[in-house]
Amino acid sequence: MKAIDVQNLTRDFDGLRAVDDISFHVEPGEIFGFLGPNGAGKSTTIRILTGQLRPTSGSASVMGWDVVEQRQQLKPLIGVVFEVQNLYLRMSGRENLRFAARLYRVDKHRVEEVLDRVGLLDRAKDTVENYSNGMKQRLLIARALLHRPKVLFLDEPTRGLDPHVAREIRSRVRELAQEGMTIFLTTHYMEEADQLCRRVAFIDHGKIAAIDTPEQLKLDHGESEEATLEDVFIRLTGSHLSHWSKGS
C-alpha cells in the first residue's frame, strides 16, 4: 500500500486552476519533498490530502483512505504542521497539547513525552504568545506528533526560523523518518529538500514539472556536475522564480 497516492488531481478556484491534473505517490517511511514557488499549488495539495479541501476532479488516498469519502478514517492517521503557526496564543504550550490530546484521545503522559522530545518541557507552562517563532514551530511539531500519525505533512516547517532552530527541526524530521513515519514536506529551501528528501516533486502553475530523487534530477537536468537542486528547480520551473529563490 502506498502512503500517499494521487491520481489526476485537479482543483479550481473561481475559474483559476490551482492544481492541474497531478499524479504521484509516496512510499511508506519516505520523506517526500513537494517544492514550488508561492502560488504553485503546494498548500492546496496539502489541504486536499489532509481532507480540508475537496478536489475538483481526480482522486487521492492517504494510507489507503480516500481523502474525500473517508476523511474521518484518515484524520487519526495524519499529523499536520501548518504553514501558519496556528496555536492558541492565550493558552500555555502544555494546555495547547492537552487540548489536542483530548481531541485525539491521547494519554496526558504523552503530552509530557512530546514536550520533552521537542525541548519545551521547561517552558511548557508559559503562554504561547510569549514563545519565540522557533518555540512555536517546535510546539506545532509536537502537536502534530502527539497521536503518533503514520503520515506527517510539514508545510514550510523551517520558514522564517533562525539557522539553529531550522537545523534542529531538520534533524527531528530525519529521526521521524528513521522511525518509519512518512513525511510530506513542502519547503522553499532547496538545500533542505536536497538534504532530507528521498524524492522530490517540482510543482509550478499547478503542474508537476519533474519528480525523482534529488541526485537523479541533478544528473538529468543540471547543466554541470556541480549543479544544485536549486539550479535544477530554476531551470525546470522558470526564470521568474530566481528572485525569490536567491532571496531565500
Binding site: K75, F82, N86, L87, L103, R143
Partner: peptide, 14 residues
C-alpha cells in the same frame, strides 16, 4: 483568524 480552525478540521472532530 488564528487558523486554529484548520487544526480542528484535520482533527477527528466533525
Amino acid at each position: 483568524k488564528t487558523k486554529t480552525m484548520e487544526a480542528l478540521l484535520v482533527s477527528p472532530l466533525s
